[in-house]
């Protein structure tokens, strides 16, 4: 991945409070136009990391860049190019939603007034706040406040959106709407969002980072992370002489283990391998060499994100 393809890059980013590392040696890489899910249990360091990227907190160690600019030295220039939704967003209560968006737009645009009003109206429409646009912020529901937060973060069409738990306080319908809005931003922006709702990440993210106790436990394209959770395991459903099939597989140097479960006339083989390339090219051939054997299903096993997350987080606790 070239530097131009990376929007956020950190090296050894660390934040220490009273001698305790809240974030430790973080090496993040967020690809351009990705929806980057930043996962971790409460207290993992997600919000602290986001605030360091925004310049609200000064790193104790390490460096970071956003769109090639240094997160400490160039913070105001970075903030001109990114949008941020805080966890539990709070705005000035005496302002209406429309005034809040005008206020936010004022940090980016000099005018003209009609153009700003049109942009504000567009964002209100995009997040579905038209009905309550002229009501004071203090009268908005949690979901409406969250939508307003997304609108103000996107008011200047930023290159990067940083959203801290954008769907945490929402009901399922509210969450669905927020995720749909995020997907719409993919074309023009890169989205980094933190969450502990794993189902959401699996639905919309293409890249994930799992943070545990301030350290990266896993990072990469979601397919790779999901695949890594199960190791190199293939599932094969066969009909015929299962014992012979099992022996044939165990005779291959790249097969470590074969577990068998019988289901009526068929059997499911769980094949653990040491070489994915060899398995991809040879596993089926080894089985089909036996004319009496029928292969009904073949594929690499992946686990869901929740399983991986729990493994990584609980593994981290076991290490303590």
């Amino acid at each position: 991945m070239s530097t131009d393809d990376v929007v956020v890059a950190t090296r050894g980013l660390t934040k220490t409070y009273d001698g305790v590392d809240v974030v430790r040696q973080l090496d993040l890489r967020v690809p351009r136009h990705s929806i980057f899910g930043f996962l971790g249990p409460n207290g993992a360091g997600k919000t602290t990391t986001m605030k360091m990227l925004l310049g609200l907190i000064r790193p104790t160690g390490g460096t970071g860049t956003i769109v090639g600019l240094d997160i400490v030295r160039d913070s105001p220039d970075i903030r001109a190019r990114i949008g941020y939704l805080p966890q539990e967003p709070r705005f000035y209560e005496h302002m209406t939603s429309r005034e809040t968006l005008r206020f936010a737009a004022g940090f980016f645009f000099a005018g003209p007034r009609e153009g700003i009003d049109a942009r504000v109206a567009h964002m209100i429409d995009l997040v579905g706040l038209s009905r309550v646009a002229d009501r004071p912020v203090k009268s908005l529901s949690g979901g409406e406040r969250q939508r307003l937060g997304i609108a103000q973060a996107q008011i200047h069409a930023p290159e990067l959106l940083i959203l801290d738990e954008p769907a945490a306080a929402l009901d399922p319908l509210g969450r669905r709407d927020v995720l749909a809005i995020l997907e719409r931003f993919r074309e023009t922006s890169t989205v980094v969002y933190s969450t502990h709702i794993l189902d959401d990440v699996q639905r919309v993210s293409d890249t994930v980072c799992i943070l545990n106790q301030g350290e990266i436990a896993a990072q990469g394209p979601i397919g790779d992370v999901l695949a890594s959770g199960s190791g190199l395991v293939y599932s094969v459903e066969v009909e015929g002489d299962v014992a012979r099939a099992r022996d044939a597989l165990l005779g291959q140097p790249w097969v470590d283990e074969v577990q068998t479960s019988i289901r009526g006339t068929a059997a499911r083989l769980r094949v653990t391998v040491s070489d994915a390339d060899a398995a991809e090219s040879q596993l089926q051939r080894v089985l089909l060499a036996d004319d009496a054997l029928v292969v009904r299903e073949f594929g690499r096993l992946t686990t869901d994100l929740e399983g991986i997350f729990i493994d990584l987080v609980e593994g981290g606790r076991d290490d303590d």
Binding site: P76, F103, G115, A157, T188
Partner: peptide
């Protein structure tokens, strides 16, 4: 519309300690 630009709008050109001052003062 591409990222970072909004059609028909002029970007604010402020720098240093005055950055954001006019908007914040108006709100204040």
């Amino acid at each position: 519309m591409t990222s970072g630009t909004v059609e028909g709008l002029v970007r604010l050109d402020e720098s240093g300690w005055r950055r954001g001052l006019s908007t914040l003062m108006r709100a204040g």
